[in-house]
Design a protein around this nucleic acid. Sequence first.
DNA 1: TCATTTGATATACGGTCCGTATGTGAAATA
DNA 2: TATTTCACATACGGACCGTATATCAAATGA
Lengths: 197, 197
Amino acid sequence: MAKRLETMEENRNKLVAAARKAFADRGFAAASMDELTADVGLTRGALYHNFGDKRGLFAAVVHQIDSEMALRAKEIARLADGDWQRLLAEGEAYIEMALDPEVQRIVLLDGPAVLGDPSKWPSQNSCLAATRQTVSTLLERKVIKPLDEEAAARLLSGAALNAALWVAASDSPKEVLPKAIEAFRAIASGLLAVDQS
Amino acid sequence: MAKRLETMEENRNKLVAAARKAFADRGFAAASMDELTADVGLTRGALYHNFGDKRGLFAAVVHQIDSEMALRAKEIARLADGDWQRLLAEGEAYIEMALDPEVQRIVLLDGPAVLGDPSKWPSQNSCLAATRQTVSTLLERKVIKPLDEEAAARLLSGAALNAALWVAASDSPKEVLPKAIEAFRAIASGLLAVDQS
DNA sequence: TCATTTGATATACGGTCCGTATGTGAAATA
DNA sequence: TATTTCACATACGGACCGTATATCAAATGA
C-alpha cells in the first residue's frame, strides 16, 4: 500500500496552497514559513523536506500559477480565428490575466526578483512560450516582418505585461483596460509585413 | 559654520554609494546593512537616522540611478533629429542602459518588488516620463495614432524593458542587441498614423 | 571663552526568521 | 513480529532588522 506517498502528496498540496495565499497577500519577503506551515497543521520540517528551502516552495507556487495561465492561453488560442488573431488574442489574454493580484504579486513582481529571468524558470514562463510559438508560425507564413523570433515574442509579451501593470495600478482598471488593449493592437500591428500596397 | 551639515552630507553619500554596490552585487534581500555601513566606517545608527529604514536607503539608490538615466535620456533626445526619431532613440537608449547590471538588478528586478509599481516611485521613473513626453508631442502633431498617451508610453517602455532583459540574459548580448533594436523599431512603427497611401 | 543645548551617530537589546542537525514514530518490509 | 526506512517534528545557532538609549562633538548664546 502507498499510504506514505498519498499523505505526502496531500501535504505538498496543502503547503503549496498555503504558500500561494501567503506569498500573494504579503509578498515573498514578508511571508513567514512558520506561520504558513502552522496554518495547515504542519511545521517547517515538512517544508524543508519537500521543497528544500523557501525559494523552492516559491518556485512550486510559480509553477502552479504558470500552468493555469498556460491552460487558459491554450484555450484562448484554440478559439482564435486565424494566426494573426491568435497572436492578438493571446496578448490580450495575457493583459487580462495579469490583472489578477496573485499573478501580479507572485509572477510579475516577486518572481523575477527571487528566481531571476523568467526564461530560466523551471516553468519556463508558459505565456511567453505560447507567444513565441504563434510568432514562429507567423514568421513561417511571412505574415510578419522577418524579425528574430525570440525578440518579437519578448517585446510583445513585455508590452502586454507593462500594459497589465499599468491597468492594475490605475484607479479605474475597468476603464483603462480597453485603452491598453487598443494600444497593444496598434503596437502589434507594427510587426505586420504588409505595406498593403 | 555648517560643519555638521557638511559631514552629514558626506556620510549620506558614502552610505548611498556603499548601498548601491551592495544592492547591485547581492540584491536587496541579501544585502546586509551591518556590513554595508561598516564598509564606510559607520554603523547602522547613521543609516536609520538618515534614511529611516532599509527600504528608504534602497529608494535613495534607485533615485540616484534613475537621475543618471534621465540625464542620459535627455542627452539622447537632444541629439535626435525629429520627434519620431527621438522616440526611437529614447527606446533604444533605454534598452542599452538596461544592459548595465546595476540598472538591471536594482531598478528592473528588485525595484518593483521592493517599492511597487514604478509609476509611484519618488523618482517617478524618468525614462517612462521621457517617453510619455515624446509620445505627447507626437500625439499633438498627429504623427501617431490617436491612442491613450499613457498606454502608448507604457507599452513602448515595457517592450524596451523586456528587450533589455532578454539581451542581458542571453549568452552573447552584443550579438542579439541589434535584433532587439530592430524588433523595437518594428513594434514602435505600429503606432504611426500614416497608411502611407 | 565657557557653559549649555542640540542632534548626528554609536551602542545595546529584543524579536523574528531561516536553514540545519538531530530525534521520533508510523508505515513499509522481510 | 522484528527491523528498517523516511517523512516530519523538534531544537539549535546565527544573521538580520528596527528601536530605544547613550554619547560626544559641534553649534549656540552669554
